[in-house]
Every structure is written in C-alpha cells, then in structure tokens.
Amino acid sequence: MKGAITVIDKGNVRVHSYMAPDASINVTTQLIETPSRIVAVDGQINVADADEVVEYAHGLGKPLDRLIITHEHPDHFQGAARFNAPIHALPVVRDQMAARGDLQDLNGIPILAAEVAPTVPIAPAVEVIDGVPFVFEAVSGGETADQLVIRLPEHGLLVAQDLVYNGTHVFVGHNDIDRWQDILQDLADPAYDTVLPGHGLPAGQAVLVEMAEYLKAARELLGDDGEAYKQAIMERFPTRRIPFIIDIGNYYLFGTRPT
C-alpha cells in the first residue's frame, strides 16, 4: 500500500483514516465503520489512490453505504466515481463542483464531471446512520467558500477535513484567514478528542492550536509575492511537508501556475 492507514477504535465505530502518499499531497479519506456498513468521507485527488482506499474498504467486509464530499476542491473528489456508492454533498458544494467541469488527476487520467457529481443532497441536521448519530454542519468561509463538518458526538469524533491540516503546509488560496481563525475557535471542544484532518494523520484538539499558529503566520507573511511567501512560510515551519500545497495556493492568489 502506498498510502497509510490509521485505525481508531471508538467502540461500535471504527475509523480507518487513509492518508495518500506525499506525491498525492497527503489527502485523507475517512472510512467510518459502523456496525454493519462504511461511510466514506472525501474521494482523493488521484484515481489510483481512490482505488487503494476502495480495495481496503472492501477488505473490511461491509458495504460502502455512501461517499460524502465535504467541499469542492478537486483533491477531495476526483476519485469519487471509483467508490461505486451514492455521492452525498451540500447542494452548494454540488453546484461548485459542477462549475469546474471536466478535469484530470495528477497522473493525467480524465475526470468527467458527470461521473463525480453528487446525487444526494445533505442538509445540516442530525442523521442516524446504522444506529450512529452523525451531525452535519455547513460552514462558510475559511479554507474554501463552503464546506461540511461532521461530528459524531457519542464518539468524540470531529471530521474537520480541510479546515485542519496536520503536518503539511496549508492552502490559503482564498485568503480568508480571519474567518478561518474564527471557525477554528468554534471547533475547539475537548469533548471531541479525535480530529480528522483533510491532509495528514488523525490528531487531537492540539492540532487546532497548531493550525491557528500557522494561519497567524500566514497572515503576517502573505504579501503580493507568492515565491517570497513560500520561502518565508517554509522557513517558519521547516518540519511541515508538501510545499506543493503552497504552490497551489499561490496559483489561486497570484496566477502563478504550480510546477
């Protein structure tokens, strides 16, 4: 396996967090295993990584109930069709995904918009799936315009996805840092001892503090020169991985195409 699996036992729920390899910018797919089924969250950037996740999921011996897409950034949905399960998303996220049109993954494999389009709308509410309460919350601003946060309150589980990066550099391409900081404060709650990020390994509440520190530095260092920002933020956080994520953000901010 090229990616890494972290398994977290929460009683009648187990989390299998798949982190893609560095070449796939450590995108994470969460497999939430309930007593009789699997709920997948986010569908990977590359088709090959999605195939690896799906093969692992099938090995658990339970059906894939659904794939939830948390937001419209392509690194979280380009492999969605490989899950062969109903695709769920907030309606606004569905529309944002559709507006991107056809794409291709990092290996040049075509991604047809029609094949990854969500067909089941999510409304902010509590949904009981296989006896387990899932709390769906719509969040506006921060890392992207709109995204879904999922809580499993009975299991202390916060599925934050791209509101949290653990150990990698952070995409700030929408430059909505102040709002993002507010969201992190709202997410802070010791009742949720497991935080699942969109890039990197599962963590605890401390990762929210680390994210806030990174965003504070990004606000300070981000000017009108993307390369200068990249060098400065890398020097400030020398142990964080995947500087290519900074390049992607710079493309959004300054039009500098990643190499």
Rank of each mutant, 00 (worst) to 15 (best):
G3H: 06
A4R: 15
A4F: 14
T6E: 13
I8R: 06
K10P: 01
G11L: 05
G11E: 06
R14G: 02
H16V: 04
Y18L: 06
D22H: 11
D22A: 14
S24M: 03
I25N: 10
N26K: 12
T28S: 13
T29Y: 04
Q30W: 05
I32C: 01
E33I: 00
R37T: 02
D42T: 11
G43W: 04
Q44W: 01
Q44H: 03
I45D: 07
A48S: 08
A50N: 03
V53D: 00
V54N: 01
A57F: 00
H58K: 14
G59F: 01
L60P: 03
K62M: 02
P63C: 00
L64H: 00
I68S: 01
T70D: 04
H71L: 13
H71W: 12
H71P: 08
D75E: 14
Q78L: 08
A80N: 05
A81P: 09
F83C: 00
F83I: 00
P86N: 06
P86C: 04
R100C: 09
G101E: 03
G101C: 03
Q104A: 07
Q104L: 03
D105M: 01
I111V: 15
I111P: 02
A114S: 14
E115I: 04
I122V: 13
A123F: 08
A123L: 11
A125R: 10
A125C: 11
A125N: 10
V126Y: 03
E127C: 02
V128R: 04
I129R: 01
G131M: 06
G131F: 05
G131A: 04
V132A: 01
F136M: 05
V139Y: 08
G142I: 09
A145Y: 12
I150F: 03
I150L: 08
R151A: 00
L152N: 00
G156P: 02
G156F: 01
L157G: 00
A160W: 09
A160F: 07
Q161D: 14
Y165D: 13
G167P: 09
T168L: 06
H169G: 05
V170T: 11
V172I: 14
G173E: 04
H174W: 11
D176I: 05
I177Q: 10
D178I: 09
R179M: 08
Q181W: 11
L184D: 13
Q185Y: 15
Q185K: 15
L187Y: 07
A188E: 15
D193P: 04
V195H: 07
L196K: 05
G198I: 10
G198A: 12
H199C: 10
G200K: 07
G200Q: 07
A203Q: 13
L208D: 13
V209T: 15
M211Y: 12
K216I: 13
A218E: 06
D225T: 08
A228D: 12
Y229Q: 05
A232H: 09
I233E: 07
I233T: 10
I233P: 06
F237Q: 09
P238Y: 08
T239A: 13
T239Y: 12
R240S: 09
F244S: 07
G249D: 07
N250V: 06
Y251W: 11
T256K: 05
R257K: 10
